[in-house]
């Protein structure tokens, strides 16, 4: 994650989400990510393959001792459902929130 940020900085890409509140993007439809922590086995597929880096690994454990992911930037989520589709454990899902624009 840190290396990725460094790489993005060195190539001049913006690192922070460029979505101020009330902007056009904020009014679009987006996703709300739910985690079922007790089902997670910490494989990190959702973190790695989220195209918008919405998730990161946390240092929290579930009761089985697996590291679980955490939602760090839900405003970037576009409801593509990649995390939901790639989760082998049925432990994460996305609910679409309709925006004002369609």
């Amino acid at each position: 994650m840190f290396e990725e940020l460094k790489r993005m900085e060195s190539t001049g890409m913006k690192t922070e989400p460029a979505v101020p509140a009330q902007s056009r993007a904020a009014r679009r439809s987006h996703g709300h990510v739910f985690l079922l922590a007790e089902r997670c086995k910490g494989c990190r597929f959702c973190v790695e393959f989220c195209p918008r880096q919405v998730l990161a690994m946390s240092d929290r454990f579930n009761s089985k001792g697996y590291h679980i992911p955490i939602v760090i930037a839900e405003e970037r989520c576009t409801d593509c459902k990649m995390c939901e589709l790639l989760c082998p454990e049925f432990a994460i899902y996305v609910v679409r929130i309709e925006g004002e624009e369609r």
Binding site: R39, L85, P88, E89, A91
Partner: peptide
């Protein structure tokens, strides 16, 4: 919380026996 696919699964048996990172769960979802 309820996963949207729980009605198609025997959710009481989850988490399943497969190892962390095993792809069979993904194939089953598909």
């Amino acid at each position: 919380a309820q996963h949207p696919l729980d009605h198609l699964l025997r959710a009481d048996r989850l988490p399943h026996i497969w190892c962390p990172g095993c792809g069979i769960g993904i194939a089953m979802r598909c």
